[in-house]
Each structure stands twice: as structure tokens, then as C-alpha cells.
Design a protein around this nucleic acid. Structure first.
Length: 386
DNA sequence: GCTTCAGCTTGTGGTCCCATCCATA
DNA sequence: CTATGGATGGGACCACAAGCTGAAG
């Protein structure tokens, strides 16, 4: 079904994939604005690890439509990443449909992230390096096909009641359910249409990493139900992924004492020392982007604010009512305008010194100076001697 | 609407000073 | 690893005419 949809999408936007500007061999998946270059993951690593300056280049995934601009928007509905222009064009033409499209901003990355970090950046944080290296996700045979990694189906047995029901088999804090088929991984991958190519290149990159074999054990995610990661996924699909659209079970996810993880959906409070700061930053940023109405949500945990019955408890439905898309679209338009202004300004950018008033220049050159500083006219006599 | 005027702001270049980087002992 | 010195880059400084702005006639 998903593959069919993707095929249709591909037919709708027939295109020839751009090759990497560096090796001219692999499909370019990354765009570096500083270099104005389209790169594959391997060449990106090679190019941007050469010196410290290059590591500061911010890179983005390539837009799935035009294949020539950095993608700044993820459309979860279409499972594609788009540049601001293509996002505007594609969703402008389908006003009625775009109103229900889930979109969220994407951020670039800098430095030389390792494969695991890239997996996290691209929304494959559940997919450890071991799976990347040895996992057979590219075909459907013998287990989980690729689509299983990226398509989210609500788990049949994940609720507080389910967990409490069998007290005899209360799982340890990490809730490792041995023998349970692994949940679909990464229901919120942010890599767009070229998932397989990305994973293929990351797999290649992983092989090239010197300590790929050493760290495998450390990076192997727990197979099966992982309460440690569940909130992160929920958070991604909910907060980051635009508005709690997917998983109404979020508010019954158990908080596990002593596990270093706590999730409380009522307040939106989320703490987990295990998560990277970058992910936390994403969360904070997204929260700031939400309309003011959301800011009240965080207070509902307090007793006094519970009296405020003018708004319902922040269930998934409540958040769905928030006019988040109007906010998002406004940002998108503003972004569009800003990008246009930036491009125009960039065209006229001048790095050489620009003299606005030649007359002032001529006068400054003829002025008397003392140690480079302009001197008063009545100091002329003394300056002459210097 | 136009002109005039007063007051304020801006811009100009050579030199100095300080912080930072890098190589070397 | 630390200390030292040279190289480098960028900002501050100066006076004052030109330009700008708002009020007044």
C-alpha cells in the first residue's frame, strides 16, 4: 500500500536523481548550502571532515521534488521532504488537502555525525548500527520489510492496563519483552522518499567507520517493546511531528520510576537524561512554536489550574483542535518571504568596501592625522612636525 | 507645497591595541 | 605539556564636512 503510494508519487514527479557532485557516482542525498553542492553521505563525510571550518557547514537533505534545494519541510502525509519552494507549490495547489497534511520543519545538521547520529537525525534512531549493517530490511522476506521500519501501526498490546494486568510478569523498568516481535521502528522517519537509498548509503558509511564493529553492542537497540524509547517516539510523532495526531495512547504511557525516564502527557512534561540534548532542543523549540493556547497546558498539572474548566485537559483531541497549521503555514510563508529577501540581498552582496560618499573619502584622505587618528584643524601645526 | 534653518547623524582612513592563532623551544 | 614570541585580524579612535530630519515661516 505504502509502496503503491510511493510509486504513484514517483510517477507524479518523474525525475532523474542527481548524482553526487563529488564522486559523481552515488545518488546525491544531502545539500550543503555553503558549498552549493549535492553530496552522497560518504562524500559528505569525506568533504566535511577535512578541517574544522568545513564541519561548520550546515547540510540538509535534498528536496524530494526538485532535487536541487535543501529540504526544510517534512510532509508526513506524503512521506517526503521538501524545500520551502516546493512545499509552498505542492501544498498551495491542494489547498483542501494540504489543510490535513502533517508538515513540520526540518533542521539541518553540522559537524561530522557518526552513523548513529545520522540515524537519529534522519529519524531512524531506533535503527541501530547493527541492524543497519546486518539487518535485512530491504526485502520483505524473512521478517520485516523496509516499510515495516517506517510505518507505524498502533501496537496491539501497549497500554497501562495491559502492563498492569499481569502483575506476575511485571517487566523490569526497561520493559524488555523478550520474544515479542519487534515493534515497527521509527514511525516518524524524516528522510523523505529516498529512505532505502539513505539507508544503503548509511550502511556503506557504517562499514567505513573504523570502530563500527567495536561499538555495535553498545548501539544495538533493545529488540521488542522498549519503554525507554516509547516516549521519544511518541514525542516525535506527537510534539515534533505536528500536534499529537497519531497516538492517542500517549497519556497512558507509564512513567517508570528509577529508570531515569519520566513521561507525563498531561503536562507535556518530559524528562529523560538518556536523550540527546539536540532532541531536547528540538522539543523545546517546537513547543515554543505552538500557539499560546498550548502554553496553558503546562500549567494544568497544578491544582489551581485544574479549576480552569474553560479548556479541556490536554488530550490528543485537544491538541488536535489547536490551529497549529495556521501557525505552521504562517511560518512557511514568512520563511518563503525571508528566503526570497535573502536571495535578493545575496545577489547584491558586496564584500569589498563600498564608499558611499566620495567627497567624504577625499576629505578624509586630505585630513591631518596624529597616529592615524584625525586631528583637530588647530593641531595642524603640531602634526606637521610629526 | 515649498524653502530655510538648526540640530543631529553619518561616514571617512590610518594607526594603535588587543585577542587569537600557530609554530617553536 | 607549558611558555614564548611572531603573525594576523578586527575593532576603536579621532575630527569634521556632508547628509538627513523635523520644525518654522
Amino acid at each position: 500500500m505504502t509502496e503503491l503510494k510511493e510509486d504513484q508519487e514517483d510517477n507524479r514527479h518523474p525525475q532523474k536523481h542527481q548524482l553526487c557532485d563529488f564522486c559523481n557516482n552515488n545518488i546525491a542525498l544531502i545539500y550543503c548550502r555553503a558549498d552549493s553542492a549535492k553530496l552522497c553521505f560518504t562524500c559528505d563525510r569525506e568533504v566535511h571532515s577535512t578541517n574544522q571550518l568545513f564541519t561548520k557547514h550546515t547540510r540538509w537533505l535534498l528536496c524530494n521534488l526538485c532535487d536541487s534545494s535543501p529540504a526544510s519541510i517534512l510532509c508526513s502525509t506524503d512521506s517526503c521532504v521538501l524545500c520551502s519552494n516546493c512545499d509552498w507549490e505542492s501544498h498551495k495547489q491542494q489547498q483542501s488537502l494540504s489543510s490535513v497534511h502533517e508538515r513540520r520543519p526540518l533542521e539541518g545538521f553540522t559537524g561530522c555525525p557518526c552513523v548513529n547520529e545520522l540515524l537519529s537525525i534522519l529519524g531512524f534512531e531506533d535503527l541501530g548500527k547493527k541492524e543497519l549493517l546486518y539487518g535485512d530490511y530491504s526485502d520483505g522476506g524473512g521478517g520485516y520489510g523496509f516499510s515495516d521500519w517506517v510505518v507505524w501501526d498502533t501496537p496491539s498490546v501497549v497500554s497501562l492496563d495491559d502492563l498492569i494486568a499481569n502483575n506476575d510478569s511485571v517487566p523490569p523498568p526497561n520493559f524488555q519483552a523478550i520474544g515479542v516481535p519487534p515493534l515497527p521502528k521509527n514511525r516518524n522517519a524524516a528522510c523523505g522518499k529516498h529512505k532505502e537509498e539513505i539507508l544503503s548509503q548509511l550502511r556503506e558509511l557504517s562499514r567505513l567507520e573504523p570502530n563500527s564493529s567495536e561499538n555495535q553492542d553498545e548501539t544495538v537497540p533493545i529488540i521488542g517493546f522498549q519503554s525507554m524509547q516509547q516516549p521519544a517516539q511518541n514525542r516525535q510523532s506527537g510534539f515534533k511531528g505536528s500536534g499529537f495526531m497519531q497516538n492517542s495512547e500517549q497519556h497512558v504511557v507509564p512513567s517508570s520510576e528509577g529508570s531515569g525516564f519520566h513521561w507525563c502527557c498531561d503536562t507535556g512534561e518530559f524528562t529523560d537524561q538518556g536523550f540527546s540534548s539536540s532532541l531536547a532542543d528540538c522539543f523545546i523549540e517546537t513547543k515554543c512554536l505552538l500557539p499560546d493556547r498550548d502554553s496553558d497546558v503546562g500549567d494544568t498539572s497544578g491544582g489551581a489550574n485544574e479549576e480552569q474548566s474553560h479548556h479541556n485537559p490536554p488530550t490528543a483531541e485537544t491538541f488536535q483542535m489547536v490551529p497549529k497549521f495556521s501557525h505552521r503555514e504562517l511560518n512557511s510563508q514568512e520563511r518563503e518571504t525571508a528566503v526570497s529577501r535573502y536571495k535578493e540581498k545575496k545577489k547584491t552582496r558586496r564584500y569589498e568596501k563600498h564608499i558611499r560618499y566620495e567627497s567624504r573619502k577625499a576629505r578624509a584622505e586630505s585630513r591631518t592625522r596624529i597616529k592615524g587618528r584625525f586631528a583637530k584643524m588647530d593641531c595642524r601645526d603640531t602634526s606637521v612636525h610629526q
